[in-house]
Design a protein around this nucleic acid. Structure first.
Lengths: 173, 173
DNA sequence: AAAGATTGAAGCTTCAATCTTC
DNA sequence: GAAGATTGAAGCTTCAATCTTT
């Protein structure tokens, strides 16, 4: 479609290497969390978000925007975690549509241990494997990829190329 | 535990950036595949493996080693894909325990389209976002991380530090 | 017994529908 | 009607158990 800057075999090798790395890293982190702390990565994400919150509690709405999941996923996940005693749910006074999710004391213990062990694991598999230069490149490269995916909220401004046709009425309403 | 080479806030920023990038890239690729070709990423992986095989067919066993999934995952996935007409299964003559999985003509059409569109997407979100230098660093960094996770099969050779005790017989067999 | 493969159950994820409160 | 949240169904993933052939 557009002019193609050739992607050759060596480039695809990088992609495959990158792809394999993501899979193995994910898997290694999952295994470690489950083995050391008895939780899954989804569990970890919920717990860490609550742990970092003001009173160890968040609205479901906030959980959604913090972690970036679908709302039903959060709902199902929290329901399961409540059964296991990691969190509790209760109604919100100020807005009776909403509900709070709060860390239990068990959940607090679990996340404290998990943070320590999980950090060690990330250090071992990620930071220790990379030089400072490599780390820096990965930081900027990650940001570039994210920008490439999200056409930027400034998208709108690009569409307004020939804006302001002098004194045209904006919607006669 | 061991002496800690400090992981500071800027390092964790890189981790979070990397983590977010992986999630968004995965999501973007899934969305594109589903929208353009009506298949999921698991579907794509099975189809591409079969497409690259000698007669567009593989034993389940080979599918497992090629893609690196759990055997039951492959089995369930293939069963679902067979229902949708993307692949067919039939018995293996030479080893009656085994079975073949083969691309249907529909499956072939689907994967041909998907490869084109999916490559374009990877180009747009991955290759176009990165400089040649960044790409090279990501390649070597990915390999390093994989090595850090898998203690290397060459592990054994490291244990053989003081090898070759003069005229030792190499396996009396 | 080991290898090749399937099955069923349970947890995870997404989608669409729903319900209540604002 | 829109926002906050839950529910149910369907597909995905893992684990353990099973079954057959070697």
């Amino acid at each position: 479609v557009t002019e193609v800057s050739r992607i050759g075999e060596s480039e695809w090798d990088v992609w495959r290497s990158f792809y394999a790395m993501r899979r193995r890293l994910d898997h290694a982190l999952e295994v470690q969390l489950q083995r050391d702390s008895g939780i899954s990565r989804p569990d970890f994400e919920i717990l860490i978000a609550l742990f970092n919150a003001p009173d160890r509690r968040l609205r479901v709405r906030e959980l959604i925007s913090t972690i970036g999941w679908e709302k039903s996923r959060v709902s199902h996940q929290v329901t399961r975690m409540e059964k296991r005693g990691l969190v509790t749910k209760f109604e919100c006074d100020s807005d009776r549509r909403g509900s709070w999710v709060e860390l239990t004391s068990t959940g607090r213990k679990v996340i404290l241990g998990a943070m320590r062990e999980h950090s060690d694991t990330i250090k071992r598999y990620f930071f220790d494997a990379l030089s400072p230069d490599e780390l820096a490149v990965i930081g900027t490269a990650s940001a570039s990829i994210i920008s490439a995916i999200e056409p930027t909220p400034c998208d709108a401004s690009l569409a307004l190329d020939n804006v302001e046709p002098a004194g045209s009425s904006t919607v006669a309403e």
